[in-house]
Amino acid sequence: SPEVQIAILTEQINNLNEHLRVHKKDHHSRRGLLKMVGKRRRLLAYLRNKDVARYREIVEKLG
C-alpha cells in the first residue's frame, strides 16, 4: 500500500540524513536521497488525489 511505502521511504530518508551529517562529501548517497524524496513526494501526491483521509492520517503519523 502507498502508506507502507511512504513509511519505509521516510525511515530510509531519516537514516540517510544522519549518514550525510557525518559524511558531508558523500554525493553518491545524496543523489540517492534526492531520488527517495522525489519518490515519496509522488506517492504522497497519489494518495492525496485518491483518498484525502488516508493522506491526512499518514502525514499526521509521520510528521
Rank of each mutant, 00 (worst) to 15 (best):
T10R: 01
T10Q: 03
R48G: 02
G63Y: 15
V59T: 05
H19C: 09
G32M: 15
L16H: 02
V4H: 13
N15K: 14
R48L: 07
P2S: 05
V37Q: 07
N15A: 14
Y55D: 01
H23N: 11
R30C: 14
Q5Y: 12
E60P: 02
E60S: 11
G38T: 12
V52C: 13
R21P: 01
R42C: 11
L33T: 01
N49Q: 13
R56F: 11
L9H: 00
E60T: 08
G32C: 15
E60F: 06
E11G: 05
K61I: 10
E3N: 03
L33V: 04
E60Y: 06
T10C: 06
P2T: 13
M36T: 03
L62N: 02
R48V: 03
E18T: 06
R48M: 07
E18L: 11
E11V: 10
N17E: 10
L62G: 02
Y46I: 13
L62E: 01
A53F: 08
R41W: 11
K25F: 11
G63E: 08
H19T: 04
G32H: 15
K25M: 11
L9D: 00
L16P: 01
I13D: 01
L43W: 04
R41P: 00
L62H: 03
I6Q: 00
L20T: 02
D51L: 04
N49S: 12
R31C: 11
H23C: 11
H19K: 06
K39E: 14
R30T: 05
H28G: 10
G63W: 15
R56C: 14
E57A: 13
N17M: 15
R41H: 08
H23D: 05
Y55R: 01
E3P: 03
V4N: 11
N17P: 01
R54S: 07
G38C: 15
R48I: 04
L44E: 00
T10H: 02
D51M: 03
A45Y: 05
H23P: 02
H28Q: 12
R41L: 11
L20Q: 02
I6Y: 02
R21C: 08
H23I: 03
L62W: 05
D26W: 03
E60C: 10
V52M: 13
M36S: 04
K39S: 05
L47N: 00
I13N: 01
Y55I: 02
G32F: 14
L33N: 01
V52D: 07
V37K: 09
R30M: 11
Q12M: 15
L43Q: 01
E3K: 02
V37D: 02
L20R: 02
R31L: 13
A53C: 11
K50E: 11
N49H: 11
K25N: 14
A7E: 10
I13P: 00
R54P: 00
S1M: 07
V52W: 14
H27D: 08
D26S: 05
K35D: 11
R31A: 11
R54I: 07
H23R: 04
L34R: 10
V52P: 15
H27M: 12
L9G: 00
A45W: 10
T10K: 01
V4C: 14
A45I: 10
Y55P: 01
K35L: 13
T10S: 05
L9P: 00
K61L: 12
R30D: 05
N15Y: 13
G38K: 14
L9R: 01
E3Q: 04
R54C: 06
A7C: 15
S29F: 07
K39Q: 15
N14G: 04
N14T: 06
T10V: 08
V4F: 10
G32S: 15
S1G: 08
E18W: 08
V4I: 10
K39V: 10
K35R: 11
K35T: 08
A45M: 10
E60K: 12
V22Q: 11
T10A: 02
G63D: 07
E18C: 12
S1F: 15
A7P: 02
H28V: 14
I8N: 07
Y46P: 00
R40N: 01
Q12I: 13
M36F: 04
L16A: 05
R31S: 07
D26A: 04
L47Y: 01
H27R: 09
E18Y: 08
G38F: 12
D26Q: 04
L33H: 03
L62Q: 02
L16E: 02
H27K: 11
K61A: 10
T10F: 03
R40V: 14
L33S: 01
Q5T: 07
I8T: 08
V59R: 03
R21S: 06
L34M: 12
H19E: 04
H23E: 03
K50M: 14
L33F: 05
E57R: 05
R21A: 07
K50H: 14
V37A: 04
L9N: 01
I13Q: 01
E57L: 06
N17V: 15
E11K: 08
I13R: 00
K25C: 13
I8A: 09
L16C: 07
L33R: 04
R31K: 12
L9K: 00
S29R: 07
H19P: 01
M36W: 03
S29D: 04
L62F: 06
I58P: 00
N14S: 05
D26M: 04
G32Q: 15
L16Y: 06
E18R: 10
D26F: 04
E60D: 07
R31I: 11
D51S: 05
K35H: 08
G32K: 15
R21D: 04
L16M: 08
N14P: 01
